[in-house]
Design a binder for these strands. Structure first.
Lengths: 209, 209
DNA sequence: GTTATATAATAACCATCGGTTACTAAAAGG
DNA sequence: CCTTTTAGTAACCGATGGTTATTATATAAC
């Protein structure tokens, strides 16, 4: 059996991943050390570097499936033909912010660094997914604003920017929650919802004027 | 002369402060080490701990005067009786975001941690100033919305929250700028301005309905 | 002016971090 | 059964923020 060793390795790699996932979620990326992860997974901290290039790579590998899930959920919301476009927009935004708050350790590392123009590297996979998520927000807003199709494309881009500021502001405001996350979201998500409704109302008013 | 030693000490403390201020502004709080600051100031890194409790305390001491300046500038804008309240609101918000982007190393540490309820400490001085700044944003918005005084206080608070999300979102979106800060602000401040105008238009539309 | 005392400043040190390297142990292949 | 390959680790590296034991010196007292 040539599989014996590889299988064990694969199991160890998965154990590291699982341990890191739990620890990152519990205490945040920065606060968790490679040695802690190793201890929780049951190997020496140097072994982790056999499976993952470094600490950030480990985070990226953990984050990608979660990001893909989020991507799919946002797509599902967008695909609902029967729902009111404004309600879809709100739900899409909420999917996004709930993810960011739930996975704050992903968020800070994946979204904090802006797109690097200076390097020849083709960007990190996670950053590519992030850009796709932004596209979904953009599309949801455009669908909620049918009837304003006449204006210049620049105006539409600026509207999306404003929406994005609000969503991003919500996340960054509550990302350092002390209360349990459930309570924070139950209390504050209505603020965001109302903010989006108000902002959209302003967009409608502006384009009518 | 009993002043000789104390004076020299005071000079050294000021040199540390000045060096740290420049280094934090240039490369960010996290990236700068105490040993670097010491080298730039011309003392050993241990001496810094004679003047300042630790690295974060050093940052706080540096930040407070800047925050007070910002506080005053926001107050000045608010005091202008002749200007259009909406323009005042936009200027107050811009003072705030320009400060946050210019002093990003202050920002991340001072504003990232939410108000700590768990400790008996009476909060950090910097956090107290921060809350005052939020109050200015709130007042500027209320002044820009005269005529909607009839509605419940909760609605007014929620409007301020929405404004705050947008402002905060702008800052967090551009706080990791790669381009020179001047260019970033010149390009992106109009986005914020337009976002605020749209949001306020939505508030007016909502309260009229 | 000499000596004693308070204190400013530092060198040496500590535990810890992310990451590398030289080595060991054990499974795979003949 | 022996050789080769490879998974895994102990020891190490340079660096961090922070502490402590020690040294140097300006002041005060005689």
């Amino acid at each position: 059996m040539t599989t014996t060793r590889k299988k064990q390795t694969e199991e160890m790699k998965a154990a590291v991943r699982s341990a890191a996932e739990a620890l990152f979620a519990e205490r945040g990326y920065q606060a968790v050390t490679m040695r802690e992860i190793a201890k929780a997974a049951g190997c020496s901290h140097t072994a982790i570097y056999l499976y993952y290039k470094n600490k950030e790579d480990l985070l990226q590998q953990i984050a990608i499936p979660s990001l893909m899930d989020l991507n799919q959920r946002m797509l599902d919301k967008l695909a609902d033909q029967k729902a009111d476009p404004l309600e879809i927009l709100i739900e899409v935004c909420e999917e996004y912010v709930v993810f960011c708050l739930t996975n704050s350790s992903f968020y800070t590392v994946l979204f904090a660094g802006s797109v690097r123009v200076d390097e020849k590297e083709p960007e990190l996979e996670a950053n590519r997914i992030r850009n796709r998520l932004f596209g979904h927000l953009d599309r949801a807003l455009r669908l909620a604003l049918t009837g304003n199709h006449g204006d210049e494309p620049e105006a539409a881009i600026n509207r999306t920017r404003a929406l994005f500021f609000m969503v991003q502001g919500y996340v960054s405001t509550y990302s350092d929650h002390v209360e349990p996350l459930d309570e924070v979201m139950e209390r504050t998500l209505p603020y965001l919802e109302q903010g989006i409704r108000t902002l959209v109302a302003g967009m409608v008013a502006h384009t009518r004027a």
